[in-house]
Structure formats: C-alpha cells, structure tokens
C-alpha cells in the first residue's frame, strides 16, 4: 500500500520540534519509530500534511538512574534498550517483563517508549484498509457514526494495546509533556481517557519527553502476563502487570495491579488494595483475581472472544500474584 503525500521535517532539538509543531498546528503529526503510525498511514487512518520526525532529537534518548530522583527514561528510548537496561532489570522487573513482550525483536529495535505510551487505540473495525472500512460504512472512531462493537454507544470501544503502560502504572510513573506553552508533569494514568476516540489528555502540540519512576517504586517485585495468539509479533489481547513490595516477614506492604488491552485505556485494579497488610493467602489471591474482572470491559474489538479475554484477566492476575508473592519470605 502506498502512503499519502506529506512533508517530513527533521528537527534536531526539542526546541526545534516544538517550533515545528507550533508552525504547522493541526496539519502536523509526530513520528518516532513509526511502527504504529506508518501502518496507520498506509491504511489511510491519518492524513497529516507534515510529519515531525522526532528521531533526530537525541536529547530525548536516555536512561538515567539517580538515587534521589529515581529512574528517568527519555521518550526516544527504544523498547530494545529498555528491555536490555540493567537498571530496569534490577530495580523495576515488571517494566522489563512487559518491554520484552512488545511486538517482535525487529519492532522493538524501532519502536520507542514515547510511541508505545501514545499508541493509537485498536479495533477490528478500525485497523483495516480504507476499502474495507468504506464497505462497512466506516465506524465511530473514523468517519462514521456507529460503533460496530457496541451499536448505540456514544463512546468508542477501541482498546489501548500497549504493554509498557500498565507496567509503568504499577510503578506510579509520571510523564513529562512539553509544549510551546511550557512543561507539565502528570501521573501516567492521567494521560489516558477511557474512550477509544479521545484516548489521551495530551494536547496535539505536546511532546511526551520523558517518563519518571519515583525511587519509592524501586525494588518492587513484579511480573507481566500477556495473552496473544502467537508468542511474538502480536499485540496483547489482554495484559496484566503486577508490582508488589513486601516486608521481611512476607506481609504485603503495597501492591498495584494494572490491566491493558481490555479497555480503551490501561487501568489500575482497585481491588488490589485488599492485599495490603496481608500475608500470602491463595484464597485472597483468588478473590482479588475474580474482582479484577470488573475492571476489564473487553468487547469484540479483536479476533478473540470477550469471554476468553475476561477469563484470562482472572487467570493472569492469579498467576502473577502467585508468582510474585508466593516466593516471598516466610511463605
């Protein structure tokens, strides 16, 4: 498939990139690794006049660990670098586990952390060629008026399908957004909107420059479980991230559970709070795994059924908690 016509500008500094975004306004779109955007451009899902290529903005490619400030990851860090980082492996295992499952080795060499967090939402009725979508009269997310997975719905149910966002949410990560108006830092979970069309609270001209994980999240045990048909390449059909901190006697001091690919936004599971102050107990784990289903609202946005995806959320929460907690001290 061929690409629509556009210009490509290649700024070398963050300041230059912000200037380009200001100059071209709504006509511009950012591109980093292009692994999400280029396939969408081929399918005619976007028609930007100008692509602002961030790859040359080297100041956004870094991993910094500071014993006071915590971990800072530049938006241009590739998923491969993230997965191979010794600091990430040692202090933030849930993030490494999630990064290692993103797409395929080739795509991880290209895809960036910023692109992974700003990923467009996905749906069987949206990620299709222009011809395919036209024959169905389009959909609510793009050019149409009806959501084909939930006719009558006023919101779009396309799912957020990134793997690193849930892991970062269990680590209480924040993201830094820069625009011509200045900079702001918000909790990662506030970047997302649970409507597949709106998706992000980020404004069009805001560049996600970095992700910060507070030092208080360092050392949390964690893991990531992902449902996919093939063990490589495929986007998640459901994903569960768990991170936990326990005391030396094995009592859970704090825990977070986050889900991806089962809602238009990645979401934290509130029922995780029930584990705080408790010792490892398989029946309590079962109870929280069961409750987690309430946070998952997958519809028929993929080739797999929603029943299966919901069921696997429960199975994965249980497995992940068992894996992380059962191996703790004094259990």
């Amino acid at each position: 498939m061929s690409l629509p016509s556009f210009e490509v500008v290649r700024p070398r500094t963050l300041e230059g990139a912000l200037e380009e975004l200001e100059r071209h306004g709504p006509d511009a779109q950012m591109i980093a690794g292009g692994t999400d955007l280029v396939p969408s451009l081929k399918q005619g899902l976007f028609s930007p006049r100008v692509l602002v290529d961030l790859k040359g903005v080297r100041e956004l490619d870094f991993i910094r660990f500071d014993r006071e400030a915590g971990l800072e990851l530049g938006a241009l860090t590739t998923i491969t670098r993230l997965a191979q980082s010794p600091v990430v492996a040692e202090y933030f295992p849930v993030l490494q586990a999630a990064a290692k499952t993103v797409a395929s080795p080739l795509l991880r060499n290209m895809g960036t952390l910023g692109g992974n967090l700003c990923l467009d939402t996905r749906c069987l009725y949206y990620n299709q060629s222009a011809f395919w979508r036209e024959s169905l009269g389009y959909c609510l997310k793009k050019e149409g008026t009806v959501c084909h997975v939930a006719p009558g719905s006023s919101v779009c149910w396309a799912v957020f399908s990134g793997d690193t966002a849930p892991a970062l949410m269990t680590l209480a990560a924040t993201v830094r957004l820069a625009s011509p108006r200045g900079e702001r830092e918000i909790p990662l979970r506030e970047l997302y909107v649970n409507d597949g069309w709106v998706r992000l609270t980020k404004r069009h001209d805001e560049i996600l420059t970095a992700v910060r994980i507070p030092l208080s999240s360092a050392g949390w045990k964690g893991t990531y479980k992902k449902l996919r048909i093939r063990n490589s390449i495929d986007y998640p059909l459901a994903g569960v991230a768990v991170a936990m901190r326990w005391a030396s006697d094995g009592v859970c001091q704090d825990v977070r559970i986050a889900l991806t690919a089962v809602n238009p936004a990645p979401r934290l599971v509130e029922a995780a709070a029930r584990l705080k102050g408790k010792r490892y107990d398989p029946s309590l784990v079962d109870e929280v795994a069961h409750e987690a289903i309430r946070t998952a609202k997958p519809l028929r946005t993929s080739a797999s059924t929603m029943e299966y995806r919901r069921h696997m959320v429960r199975v994965f929460v249980r497995r992940a908690l068992n894996e992380v907690w059962a191996n703790g001290p004094h259990c």
């Binding site: 490509v8 290649r10 690794g33 692994t35 280029v38 080739l106």
Partner: peptide, 18 residues
C-alpha cells in the same frame, strides 16, 4: 529486514528521508 547501523529493522516501515 535491513540492518540499520548493524541492527535489524523493517524497511517497509521506514521513510527513506529519515
């Protein structure tokens, strides 16, 4: 697949100008 500075990447995703 082509190697970009030695690393395998996908040429069907790469804008040549970049």
């Amino acid at each position: 697949t082509v190697l970009v500075d030695g690393e395998p990447q996908m040429a069907c995703l790469m804008l040549a100008v970049s």
